[in-house]
Design a protein around this nucleic acid. Structure first.
Lengths: 228, 228, 228, 228
DNA sequence: GATGAATGAGACTTCATTCAT
DNA sequence: GATGAATGAAGTCTCATTCAT
């Protein structure tokens, strides 16, 4: 339930209700296509607005306006503001998780794998609204227990496990000396979090060369010492 | 525009307005003492509520109730909700910054200094509501530009500078090999950020042994490899 | 500053915002018709309430109740209380000004013209809420500089100019002896103001026969002396 | 009872309560003198504020500040805001009424008497805050029936009666031709009202030469025709 | 008597949600 | 399915009035 909007009328509303597509249950119907388009437009607009204003600070009116639909239309696709919010965050991470789980299967040197992951991170997270989504989760997590739980279960735990495995293998191979990285994969990911936060809040005052920092980080992890 | 007096009052109102205690500027006045008490009570209540619900999600009513005062009383001490919020964050960090700036003056081994700082961090930040305040800043920063700026100027830039100097010294002394820590003090602090976020969001699902992680982090920084 | 979105919205908001009916700009839409109806209902209710209680003394709640709409609906038609107030006064006088400017074009004796104007005044001002609107302007003018300016520009200056011209003609024709009426059309209108004020405040204690007073006034203007 | 402030706590408060002077019932006590001074200071401050902001728009806080006393002190001298308001208006007119009733006793020509009255009016009403008080009565009268009644009874009816008598005498003496002035003394006073209103609202846009207008008015009353 | 901090009813305004068209 | 006008609960802020000091 929302932090501040105690779900006034509906009380025990329909659990999800993507209502859409009732008659046109065929596969490639025009209706269906248009419907999916709308849904995406709403999600895209919602992303912008939530990222900029937070959950409580975003007005459905603004989302509708940005998506060029009527306010009421949102309710045809999402049960309420909170559902929209959570579906949005959910949708944002699905592709990233898939991508991350696919990379490490190869047999290339761990450092190369990590460099690829960092590239992905810089491009797909720092370079997009996703970095704001991470901030949103940090910001609103405590008020949306389900949200935090979902992200732990679906994203974090998997990413952490993957990293842990990756580092264990690297340690076993002798690529990495310090065993701590297998036990605390957070240490591997920490600079990424710093990058996300910094870019969202302090970029303006002191730009951070994220690529360089990440490279330096890898140097530390792999025990090399570059002389810049 | 106000209902009663189309343009009057505040506009470019008094910058702070603790209004209270103008005439009774004696030293130990009862009024004065009680006034400070109230102010603190409000700040304490505000901390709890803001930490739990964010800025927009917090009701002044709840703060008043928690502080056991009337709603209107808040306005005797703070001009409005936003001012209260900012003063709160400001007040929370003053002591920490002071403490951090005092530690590194000694001549003890850098690792000892860092361990002491970490101890302070664990006790005074992770062990208190301050960790939530950090989350608040992350969460609300983009919507309160002044807030982000203030914290960059008053807290972050100083802490980063201090850390950078500390690491430069450690490198010069040969305690630390990797020069990156002087250039990117963020790498030193990153696990602390992880700890804050993790404790606020995921502790429930997977407790994180912060102390152990921090120790492991120091081991990495100082090139030791403990076998746990 | 708003609780939710520190600075956003209105600021230098839409100048008027009848918001309603953007897409449905067809000619005789049902929506459109009902919308105009509502707006009028709100204005009518506002008239009653403002006339009875003044600007600061009127609650939007009461206006809504009288108009049989929800409080929030008012804001679909008017940006805020002040805008509603000013639009109301504006709307009340448009027809009167038009009417007054149309009368004097004829070539009938000046006295007849004035008698007609007085008839209009008695019927359309004294006989309606408009007399209260005049009192409202007198009462609130100093606190709403724009209001006073608007009414001077749009109503008073025109009415005064028209009267001045009328009296100049009457003097040229020999209908009126005293030249002062052209220079101080206020002397011609003064009894009308008295009638408005008196009817609003003292009618109860001492009824004033406005028609008789106005007739006596005309007798003075035109130098006749009726024996009653 | 106030229009908007339904007398919250006291309900059936003490009817008047000028409380002051309990022990020091002597005549020239220092206490007493200081007390009267305070009361006057409050009234003076109240005059400024009410004149500028109307009844509902004035804050007791501002009155207190202007009078350089504490807010609570006002309640030692006046039962509540409304009482203060009414006492103020009452106090403002006592001297004027006395003055007006004293003038016409002489046997000088009526025109001279009227000129003197006009002088008094210009100096003591138009030239002071009293003109604003008249506007206040017009503005707030309908919401304070007692106020309107009081002013009708104590001020208006007397002034009207005095004028009526004066004009009856002038007519009997042949100084004034038109008998209407005895029946409608309002016609005699009307330009004064115009002057008050105009000076309060429109002076800024179009200054009005009140003295000249009044002279022209007298010319009309006395059937003279000055060529300016 | 005087003070001014405290109170709390109530005003304006916003916005998630509903529903007639 | 889509629209957007309407609703009304709830939030922030104000200020007349009280009362402990």
């Amino acid at each position: 339930m929302s932090a501040r909007n105690p779900k006034r009328r509906s009380e025990a509303a329909s659990p999800k209700r993507p209502v859409v597509n009732r008659a046109s249950a065929g596969k490639g119907g025009v209706r269906e296509a248009r419907s999916a388009e709308r849904r995406d437009a709403i999600l895209a607009a919602a992303l912008e607005e939530f990222a900029a204003n937070g959950f409580a600070g975003t007005r459905l009116d603004d989302i509708a306006q940005r998506a060029k639909i009527a306010k009421g239309t949102i309710y045809l696709y999402f049960a309420d503001k909170e559902t929209l919010f959570q579906e949005l965050l959910r949708a944002m991470f699905a592709p990233i998780v898939r991508a991350l789980e696919h990379i490490p299967k190869s047999d290339m040197p761990t450092r190369d794998i990590l460099e690829r992951m960092i590239g992905l991170f810089v491009q797909e997270v720092l370079g997009t609204r996703r970095k704001d989504v991470i901030r949103l989760i940090i910001a609103e997590g405590p008020r949306f227990p389900k949200l935090a739980e979902f992200h732990y279960r679906e994203v974090l735990s998997r990413v952490m496990a993957a990293m842990s495995a990756l580092m264990a293998r690297a340690i076993a191979r002798g690529e990495v000396k310090n065993q701590a990285y297998a036990k605390f994969p957070q240490l591997l990911a920490a600079p990424g979090l710093v990058a996300v936060i910094w870019s969202g809040l302090f970029e303006r005052f002191a730009p951070l060369d994220v690529a360089a920092m990440m490279r330096a980080h890898l140097d530390i992890v792999f025990g090399e010492r570059k002389t810049p």
